[in-house]
Design a protein around this nucleic acid. Structure first.
Length: 659
DNA sequence: CTAGGGTTAG
């Protein structure tokens, strides 16, 4: 019995346990690692613990077991303890709450009252934190309300948990209320005196995170900017960087990252920071920076433990930057892959039109023991859809319910309908829409509408657009599509009517914008952009290129241009498309042999696609274009046309409107 | 000894 041990041993027991916990929980070790360490603790403690454990050791044990999800053991210890204090109860509540057993947590909650132990702020906070960490944000906010009504005063820890719940809900006004509440109740000092007050900084970090997840960057940024450089810790930087990367401008995220690691107050990024910055690189297709980050991760061993997350982000970054082979390299080097690793790899292959490799990954994933779920199937269907594998796609669609007992959701139907419609089977697509067991979603109608653009079906297009308008889901993209469909059918009055409608309702066509990484940094171009200093050279180069490819058989596809201008004007408008300008800039500023990677905010236009195919035959560069949904590779030959024409149809698909 | 901030695919 510990109570009878020599005095010196008791503190060692406590220290050992809490030290082990701190070492494991505080430093990003998986609970399973801690569990094995705990076994050793148990060996020391339990051979004498058929008798009652001392309250301190008992509490530490409850905590430790709770953290490992071993609540049965925690209960045993709890019941064995003759003297329990409020900490014992709180540790139990926290254990249940964190393992998601809220029923048991509340049961204890009631018992605490029965036993006349005062409910304290830690008990409340443990419940709130449990809800918040498990994504039950509404419940967390409800318990917080009850807490306030009951007269308990929250402290910083409570506020941090509640702010985190608001952040994941995007609950701006409630978050702001809590901000105000903390100021009013002196939970936050106003004087910007951060002098070593760790808790204050944590609240500020939670506030920055909350405001940026509510897309209120001004508020987030002003809190961030008010924190002196030397006081910001790695979380302060990470929430601000992550906020910009996920909800704002990724360029800002990159700028902040550079500031973060700059002397004299440089802060070392951790795995969270790296994940966020890789996300920003993925959004911007900033492959050079992404590669530098990759190198940084390889050089610093401290990322090993959490390489799991970082590697998944690397896969995503490389595939969105157009380098799917490096992607595969990272993937293969992972010793432990999660379902996310596998799906990311499939998405990567799919986006690059390498469908059979995507399906190969799907096979290997199943062989590795992962049972496909509805998300896996969604990804497989996307891959089939991107790569024009109609029959395989449909058979997977059938297989998911027949062989795996999964019920297709509206998204799955949307994929299947997209697949059918784009490849000319509009009738079957339409039948599938009518047979859907649920209301078709906007995505379904957009898929149909886009297919009508390719297959010139005015009637079905009108129907789809009406549905979109009914559900308030129409946007510049859908109007542009229908307008193009009318134009192709020669129905100019309808074109004019749509234009007028767009003007009246204030819907503006988003301008196309492309950017490219030249030798001297990134340059971006809008349609008809002449603001770049190299513009004269860019336009001159384009003109000569177009002349040369015309001689090779290129015919400008003027139906991608506006319809109320004459033919010559149409040709000029086509030349000014942002992706052509970006290509010319890339050619002017990149060494021969280097790939030119262009990113565009809207779908690549059909004429540009055709022009690039010819141009890639006469320049010594591979051209890789990324648009919002996929990659187009052009490499010295008619690759994509040879691929059964599938990619070609795919490319015309959603017109120019969809982002 | 109990409660607390930030990350990945669709």
């Amino acid at each position: 019995m510990l109570l009878n041990l020599p005095k010196a041993v008791k503190p060692i027991g406590v220290r050992f346990l809490s030290g082990a916990r701190a070492a494991c929980v505080g430093v990003d070790v998986y609970p399973s690692h801690f569990a094995s360490l705990l076994k050793e603790c148990k060996a020391i403690l339990l051979h004498m613990s058929h008798l009652m454990p001392d309250v301190f050791v008992g509490n530490a044990l409850i905590d430790a077991y709770g953290k490992c999800g071993l609540m049965e053991n925690a209960v045993k210890v709890f019941n064995m303890m003759e003297f329990k204090d409020v900490v014992s109860w709180n540790a139990m509540v926290a254990g249940y709450s964190q393992s998601g057993n809220f029923k048991a947590a509340f049961e204890l909650f009631k018992n605490i009252r029965k036993e006349n132990i005062p409910l304290d702020v830690v008990t409340w906070t443990a419940i709130i934190a449990g809800y918040s960490q498990r994504g039950c944000s509404h419940e967390a906010l409800n318990v917080f309300r009850q807490m306030i009504f009951s007269g308990s005063l929250p402290n910083c820890v409570t506020i941090i948990s509640v702010l985190s719940a608001c952040a994941s809900l995007g609950a701006f006004s409630q978050g702001m209320e809590i901000h105000a509440y903390s100021l009013k109740n002196c939970l936050l000092t106003l004087d910007n005196d951060f002098g070593g007050e760790d808790e204050d900084l944590m609240v500020y970090n939670a506030l920055i995170d909350m405001y940026s997840k509510c897309r209120s960057f001004k508020a987030a940024r002003s809190i961030f900017d008010d924190i002196p450089l030397e006081e910001r810790n790695v979380v302060t930087w990470t929430v601000m960087i992550g906020g910009h990367a996920q909800y704002g401008d990724s360029n800002d995220a990159l700028k902040l990252f550079v500031e973060m690691i700059s002397e004299p107050y440089g802060v070392a990024p951790n795995a969270y920071t790296i994940s966020c910055i890789l996300m920003a690189c993925a959004h911007l297709a900033a492959i050079r920076i992404g590669k530098q980050i990759h190198a940084y991760v390889l050089c610093h061993h401290r990322y090993d433990l959490s390489a799991y997350f970082v590697a998944n982000c690397l896969i995503d970054m490389y595939s969105k930057c157009g380098d799917v082979d490096t992607d595969r390299h990272v993937f293969d080097s992972m010793s432990q892959k999660s379902a996310i690793s596998w799906t990311s790899m499939m998405i990567g292959y799919g986006m690059h039109g390498r469908g059979s490799e995507a399906l190969d990954i799907f096979d290997k994933m199943r062989k590795a023991g992962f049972v496909p779920d509805d998300i896996t199937f969604l990804v497989v269907l996307y891959a089939c859809s991107y790569c024009g594998m109609v029959d395989q796609g449909l058979s997977y669609f059938d297989s998911m319910s027949a062989d795996y007992g999964l019920t297709p959701r509206a998204e799955h139907y949307a994929c299947a309908i997209d697949l059918l419609a784009r490849f000319g089977r509009l009738d079957k697509a339409w039948k599938t829409v009518k047979d859907m067991p649920m209301e078709p979603t906007a995505v379904v109608w957009v898929a149909l509408l886009s297919a009508c653009r390719v297959h010139s079906n005015v009637e079905l297009a009108e129907h789809a657009l009406n549905k979109l308008v009914e559900m308030n889901a129409e946007n510049d993209g859908s109007y542009t599509l229908i307008s193009n469909i009318y134009a192709t059918a020669g129905r100019w009055k309808d074109v004019a009517r749509i234009r007028h409608l767009m003007k009246k309702s204030g819907i503006k066509k988003r301008p196309g914008c492309s950017w490219v990484h030249g030798q001297k940094g990134t340059a971006s171009f809008f349609v008809g952009d002449r603001s770049h200093p190299l513009s004269p050279q860019i336009y001159a180069l384009l003109e000569s290129l177009i002349d040369r490819i015309k001689a090779m058989g290129y015919v400008p596809e003027t139906n991608f241009a506006l319809h109320d201008v004459d033919e010559e004007e149409k040709n000029n408008l086509l030349v000014e498309h942002s992706e052509k300008l970006a290509l010319a800039y890339g050619l002017l500023t990149t060494f021969p042999g280097c790939p030119i990677r262009i990113t565009k905010n809207l779908r690549v236009c059909g004429d540009c696609h055709s022009a690039f195919t010819y141009i890639s035959k006469i320049v010594d560069h591979e051209i890789v274009v990324r648009d919002p949904s996929r990659f187009h590779h052009f490499k010295n030959e008619y690759n994509h046309v040879l691929r059964g024409g599938a990619m070609w149809i795919v490319d015309q698909e959603k017109g120019k409107g969809k982002m």
